[in-house]
């Protein structure tokens, strides 16, 4: 098993700083969905991780803890996290992306 980044959508959707999307060394790995938090009543959308591209370097954790000071990202084992995004389930809609979250482990 290996670690991947997991973004807490409740913290992310309350602040929406988008810093982690800019500091990830992998392309199209931390994406942004403007609708992800709104159905739960939050003001903004949330960032999410395409777990099939994440190499587990934890730079986003440092950025979220030390630069944004939100502490929304944790490294977790891929078989123990809940529903996540995979590249094949992400679609692009102009100013946002949309991800169908599913368990990466069971599929």
């Amino acid at each position: 098993m290996y670690l991947v980044a997991n973004i807490d959508q409740e913290i992310c959707a309350a602040t929406s700083c988008k810093l982690c999307t800019q500091y990830c060394p992998e392309a199209n790995t931390i994406q942004y969905d403007t609708e992800l938090g709104k159905d739960k009543g939050f003001k903004y959308g949330s960032a999410y991780v395409a777990v099939d591209r994440c190499k587990g370097c934890a730079q986003c954790v440092w950025v979220c803890d030390n630069m944004a000071k939100h502490k929304a990202i944790k490294m977790e084992m891929i078989d123990q996290i809940g529903d996540q995004a995979l590249t094949e389930n992400i679609s692009y809609h102009g100013k946002t992306t949309q991800a169908v979250l599913a368990s990466p482990w069971k599929s």
Partner: peptide
Amino acid sequence: QVGTFKEILEEHPMCAGCAMTL
């Protein structure tokens, strides 16, 4: 706008967390 459009760079074989990749 990063995170809302498809980037030109794709998956690559460089080390995890490399600042050069960033």
